[in-house]
């Protein structure tokens, strides 16, 4: 793959790179042009159209970032997509959340789940690639030679970009971190704990609440721990600029 590497991240000017990324990522936002090939009556056909788009996206991303990085993106995409599939299956049995199910319930459930799964495994790797296509470090370096009214706004923009890229990195490690920090929530040898009580249903609700809250806290703490360093880096850029002006 390395022999045929595309280098979209090095394309200049930036607006042209952005245009290419938007054009390739247009189907998830608008449905176009995939909607032209889709048919209302043929579920398999529609899923195949999205699968073809997914294969194109993987190929494009893989050619840009290499196989190893693509696998990292795919691990995030598959973890998230499989989680959604499982939740869809479980929650579809709760009448409170789905009061009026369609007549051919299992077919609709399968179609919706399969479609969501295919769209997510196509779009998540592309989203992560698109964010990392813009180099925050290079942007910060160019800022050191710039001035003008919008200088501070640009520094804030560079910081926001750097933080968003960092969240993408955190996401790739988060599942392992979350599993290590909360072994009782996920490892099979603890799964029987939930069935010991006669009120096991309440146990599963508590499990879900604990899983969500600890996941959110893990996401927050691992995201926020790097923020002081990023802010300090940008502060140095601003101070350096002020010293130059003086």
């Amino acid at each position: 793959m390395a022999n045929y590497q595309l280098k979209l991240s090095e394309v200049k000017p930036t607006w042209f790179k952005l245009l290419i990324l938007i054009f390739i990522g247009l189907p998830p936002f608008t449905g176009w042009p995939l909607s032209r090939f889709m048919s209302g009556n043929y579920a398999v056909h529609n899923i195949s159209v999205w699968t073809a788009y997914g294969v194109f996206i993987w190929l494009f991303t893989g050619l840009n970032v290499g196989g190893k990085q693509l696998l990292k993106y795919l691990s995030v995409a598959f973890t998230a997509s499989l989680l959604i599939l499982m939740l869809t299956g479980v929650f579809s049995h709760i009448p409170f959340l789905n009061p009026e199910k369609p007549a051919d319930e299992s077919l609709a459930l399968s179609y919706t789940s399969a479609m969501t799964f295919v769209i997510m495994i196509a779009v998540i790797p592309y989203g992560l690639f698109a964010i990392n296509c813009f180099s925050a470090s290079a942007y910060v370096q160019t800022l050191q030679f710039q001035s003008g009214k919008r200088f501070k706004f640009k520094v804030h923009l560079a910081l926001a970009l750097r933080v968003c890229q960092h969240v993408g990195d955190v996401l790739m490690k988060l599942f392992d971190i979350w599993r290590e920090e909360n072994p009782r929530l996920i490892r099979p040898r603890f799964a029987t704990d939930l069935n010991e009580s006669k009120l096991s249903f309440i146990g599963y609700i508590l499990w879900f609440k604990n899983a969500v809250v600890t996941w959110c806290f893990a996401l927050l703490s691992h995201t926020f721990e790097a923020i002081p360093y990023f802010s300090e880096e940008m502060r140095i850029v601003i101070n350096h600029k002020h010293q130059k002006i003086k």
Partner: peptide, 26 residues
């Protein structure tokens, strides 16, 4: 700058929270 960083982080986390735990309603 700290506020920008936290707002950017929360925006990204809100996107992730919306995307990763989602259950379709038919």
């Amino acid at each position: 700058l700290g506020k920008t960083a936290v707002v950017a982080a929360l925006t990204a986390l809100a996107a992730l929270g919306t995307m990763i735990i989602r259950v379709p309603i038919f």
